[in-house]
Design a protein around this nucleic acid. Sequence first.
DNA 1: CGGGAGGTTGACCACCATCAACTGCTGTGG
DNA 2: CCACAGCAGTTGATGGTGGTCAACCTCCCG
Lengths: 241, 241
Amino acid sequence: MAALQTTDVWFRKLIRLMDLNNAEREALAALPFTLEKTSANRYLVKEGEKVTRCCLLVEGYVARHKMNREGKRQIVSFHMPGDMVDLQHSLLPTADHNIQTMTAATVAWVPIPSLAEVASLFPRIAAAFAKDALIDASVFREWVLNVGARDAKTRIAHMLCEFLQRREALGIATAEALDLPFTQEQIGDATGLTSVHVNRMLRELVEDGAFTRIGRTLRVSDWRKLKAIADFDPAYLHQAA
Amino acid sequence: MAALQTTDVWFRKLIRLMDLNNAEREALAALPFTLEKTSANRYLVKEGEKVTRCCLLVEGYVARHKMNREGKRQIVSFHMPGDMVDLQHSLLPTADHNIQTMTAATVAWVPIPSLAEVASLFPRIAAAFAKDALIDASVFREWVLNVGARDAKTRIAHMLCEFLQRREALGIATAEALDLPFTQEQIGDATGLTSVHVNRMLRELVEDGAFTRIGRTLRVSDWRKLKAIADFDPAYLHQAA
DNA sequence: CGGGAGGTTGACCACCATCAACTGCTGTGG
DNA sequence: CCACAGCAGTTGATGGTGGTCAACCTCCCG
């Protein structure tokens, strides 16, 4: 275990959420953690498990998903560096969903008692945790709307918009060209569609002039058009909050 | 404004979540609030609004919903007495969804500064708030799975199971016979189906022997069978937590 | 160079939407 | 007291979105 540096990408988000002061930043930086590097498609948390530590994503991409009776997988969210993927387990020790890496990834495991301690000593850190969780919930609501009320093309476009928008907020990449970390099957699992239909819709989105595509690399030619097709309004991400 | 009594139904849930002690209960009971009685189908919060107070549901039923571009409504959750319907607005002042009564209802409005104060003075109350929000999020995840990965009959059955399960936890009613506060159109809005198809599926569920139906009153003949049809596992409600 | 995962395309079909007509209930005003 | 409006529910006919199945392609990596 080593001390975190406040400059690490994965606390920037938290610091921004509540505009944390120096004492608060140092308390976060002093949290103990264990780094773990994993390959793609590994489970970090499995549904039903008792969880004793929380994982913060440092590098790579992970998804959270649940399965129905028939084993059909529904991705309920995806995450990128800086996301506190399972902060919820600090208060709800039994996992109600799976967390799986989508690419090779690095995560920092933080013991729950340490998180609880810092939260009870620093009410504004607790508030930042809560705010992060509330934004998470807002994104879930939008996903319910997305899979429940939009047609296939709109759904996929919306998911891509969210990915672009969140990626831009990280400051890692511009929106213009980006490598998607998703297979078409994963896009299907996130949107409630089959990979076959995802393929057809991606083709149509290219025909519509929303973006061009080379392998998994998208080049967004007209961001405004893509957002229009997608019925996308980023308010639900509460990025300015 | 008057003082709350700790015996009021709508704090029982919170008290149970963190097993709050007397000082904490009294702090909750001392919160200022305004009672409001409304009729059915009234908006309590509208998407895009700035919110300065939080509503706790005392009596009746409310739903939270969002709309897509074409005005198609997606209900993302329903709530019953004792639920803190929009605790999230204490930290995210801009509403990202609508809150609407489904029946005549009574709500208690609590000013956000009062909630923030009690949360910062009592870390375990803050934790109870957070826990409630996390359970909320867990329910949203299950809904994403429900509308994204289950067929129509299963979806409807699942929604009914959740309603029954949560109602039972309230101690208001047994599971056997209950009046649904939903129209078939609302069930459709919650499951991403049309009211016509909801009607057909309800008929089939009756034919399958899951329950009988007189108007909006369900009599569940075989709770185990209904749960089996619904692919329902109450773990995601974290009721024991 | 061979195997496997992911991607692409076509043919066919089922689930659920759409449209429409009709019923039954409830509340309300003449 | 009845007429009637309006909403919710019910049922049938038809059609489209997206699923299923299958074949084949492409690329990467061992």
